[in-house]
Simulated assay, not measured.
Amino acid sequence: MMKRWQALKRLLPLLAMFSLLLSGCGREDLSVLNPQGPVAEGQLGLITISISIMALVVVVVFVIAAYVLIKFRRKPGQNEVPVQVEGNHKLEIIWTAIPLLLVIVLAVPTIQKVFAYGEDKWNEEGVLQVEVTGHQFWWEFSYPQYDITTAQELLMPVDREVALRLRTADVLHSFWVPSLAGKTDTNPDGSINHMSLSTGNPGTYIGKCAELCGQSHGYMEFRVKAVEAEQFDAWVEAFKAPAVLPEDSQLAEKFRTNCLSCHAVGDQGGFLGPNLTGIGSRETIAGILLNDINGAKGSSPVKDNLVQWLSEPQEVKPGNTMPDPKELGFSDEEIEQIADYLANYKLDY
């Protein structure tokens, strides 16, 4: 017994170190334990019920096991076989009924909430409609009520329910904003899935793709930004303003011919790639390069990230479908100029 205790004492520092390391593995903004809306709160309630039931079962089983081990352990000189209880109908009914009751307690609220959170609220009065399309490896958000399509940042007003229609342009993806709602797949069979979310707390919430979808699945982040209703209206108005192209006419023509064949700015451009309108106001470039607005004085994190992205898109996000600007004939100087232009293409809201 003493040897076992000494061995356990030697393991305690190691266990403490692993506990400390694991405590830093999570991100609060990606935690389902930090709900910021009614859907996430309801899902946390289901998690709490499940864990409570499991903990209750574990405690009861361990208590019974400990009691049996102590009460009915074989004593010195005791060799007779203990009284057997097989065929005891009362006990069999009890240990069959209790698990069944626990399953029912868990199943009823789970079924209610799962169906409720996947309900199609698209046509309900007052909701904000947003069509979500997953791409390799970015997210597209369309607002049919306002004739707006943007990318990587879903802007929504606080205290207003958002009805989502989710689809994919290629492979299976899964839309997930842990602080606001659970995971919903976008299926490549052409079907549309539905979900809704809302929050009363202004702020930025991190979203991820929760389904392995290719080489850069881990880099498929997006943002959900909840703002006051007045800010949302100002964003809509600013987004719909006419496009502003680079001042240099030669650069503007090259940008229009190459970049706007896939992307859009304002009322110009295509729809194959992410819409670039107001990209200088976004918190990230390519979803993962953070635009630190509190960077060093005189620096331009947005421009630096754009230069990095335009210079080596496959290094930043391997497997993406964006052509390398250098292969399209853009020089390093032109990439700098386009990065500067896009970094200053901001929306005031």
Rank of each mutant, 00 (worst) to 15 (best):
Lys3Arg: 12
Ser19Cys: 14
Leu20His: 04
Glu41Ile: 01
Gln43Pro: 00
Gln43Cys: 00
Thr48Val: 15
Ser50Glu: 00
Met54Arg: 06
Val59Cys: 03
Phe62Gly: 05
Ala66His: 04
Tyr67Asp: 01
Gln78Phe: 09
Glu80Cys: 04
Val81Met: 10
Val85Met: 08
Leu91Cys: 05
Val108His: 06
Ile111Ala: 14
Asn123Asp: 15
Glu131Thr: 06
Gly134Cys: 08
Gly134Lys: 11
Asp147Cys: 08
Val162Arg: 01
Val171Met: 06
Thr184Trp: 05
Asp189His: 11
Asn193Thr: 08
Asn193Ala: 07
Met195Pro: 00
Thr199Ile: 05
Gly203Ile: 07
Lys208Ala: 15
Gly214Leu: 10
Tyr219Lys: 13
Glu221Cys: 06
Glu221Met: 09
Ala229Ile: 04
Trp235Ile: 08
Val236His: 02
Pro242Ile: 02
Leu245His: 00
Pro246Arg: 10
Asp248Met: 10
Gln250Gly: 11
Ala252Gly: 02
Glu253Phe: 12
Lys254Gln: 10
Lys254Arg: 09
Arg256Trp: 03
Ala264Lys: 06
Ala264Arg: 12
Ile285Cys: 05
Ile285Phe: 03
Ala286Arg: 02
Gly287Glu: 08
Pro301Asp: 07
Leu306Gly: 03
Gln314Tyr: 09
Glu327Gly: 08
Glu334Cys: 01
Ala339Ser: 14
